[in-house]
C-alpha cells in the first residue's frame, strides 16, 4: 500500500530522518532485523506521525493505536513506537524550537501507549525483563540488550488484542538459523515466565 504522506515542512522531514537514525542506531534489533528498508519505513512512519499529529488532533490516539497493531504484527512491539514518539518529539523540538506545543500530541500518545502496556505488566517487571533475559543468556549476543524488553512488550501487545505480536517477534528472535540453542532456550524460558505475569484483563 503506497507511501505515507511527507510532512510539508523541511524541518519536519529533517526531524523524521534524525529520529529514525536515533531509533535504528540505538537498537541492534531494529538495525539487524530490518536494515535499510526498515529505516525507510521508519522515516515514512515518522512522516505519518507528524502529519497526523499536526492535523488530526483528537483522533490522533486512535491512529497511533492502529499503527501499534500494524507494526506489532510485523515484529515491532508497541514499546518501540513509544520510544519513536518520544524521540521524534525531541527531534522536532530541536529542529523547530518555536513550535511550542504543536507536537505535544506525540508525547500524549507515547504516554497513552505506556499506560496501556502497564495494564498488562507492571512497570518494574517490564523494566526487569531485559536483565532477566540476559541472566539466562549471559554470553550470547550481548549486542541485543533489548531482547528481554521486546519479549515483554510483545506479550503486552498480544494481551491487548494485537494478534501475532509474539509470533512475529519470535520468528526472528528464536530463529534457529540465526541464534544458538542456548539463546533460543533463554528466549522461550523468559517468554514463558513473563507470560505467567501478564494480565489479560482490560480495566
Amino acid at each position: 500500500m503506497g507511501d505515507h504522506p511527507l510532512p510539508g515542512d523541511e524541518r519536519e522531514i529533517a526531524a523524521a530522518v534524525s529520529a529514525c537514525a536515533l531509533m535504528f542506531d540505538g537498537s541492534a534489533y531494529l538495525s539487524h532485523r530490518y536494515g535499510e528498508r526498515g529505516r525507510q519505513f521508519c522515516r515514512s512512519g515518522g512522516g505519518f506521525l507528524i502529519v497526523t499529529c499536526r492535523h488530526v488532533h483528537a483522533g490522533f490516539l486512535e491512529q497511533v493505536r492502529w499503527l501499534v497493531g500494524l507494526r506489532a504484527a510485523r515484529g515491532m512491539p508497541g514499546w518501540l513506537l513509544e520510544r519513536h514518539l518520544v524521540i521524534l518529539h525531541g527531534c522536532l523540538r530541536r529542529e523547530i524550537p518555536a513550535a511550542g506545543t504543536r507536537y505535544d500530541g506525540l508525547l500524549t500518545a507515547a504516554t497513552d501507549l505506556a499506560d496501556r502496556r502497564r495494564r498488562h505488566l507492571a512497570e518494574d517487571a517490564f523494566l526487569a525483563a531485559a536483565s532477566r533475559f540476559s541472566a539466562r543468556a549471559p554470553d550470547c549476543h550481548p549486542t541485543l540488550p533489548e531482547a528481554g524488553t521486546l519479549l515483554a512488550a510483545a506479550l503486552c501487545d498480544e494481551a491487548a488484542g494485537n494478534e501475532g505480536a509474539v509470533r512475529s517477534l519470535l520468528d526472528w528472535l528464536a530463529d534457529p538459523r540465526r541464534f544458538p540453542p542456548e539463546w533460543i532456550g533463554a528466549v522461550h524460558a523468559t517468554a514463558g515466565e513473563l507470560a505467567a505475569e501478564i494480565s489479560h484483563e482490560c480495566p
Binding site: 500500500m1 492502529w66 497493531g69 500494524l70 504484527a73 510485523r74 494478534e163 501475532g164
Partner: peptide, 13 residues
C-alpha cells in the same frame, strides 16, 4: 488481513 500481516502488500494490490 494486510494490517495483521497475514497477506502481503502484493496480494492486497
Amino acid at each position: 488481513l494486510w494490517e495483521r500481516n497475514v497477506i502481503s502488500v502484493a496480494v492486497e494490490h
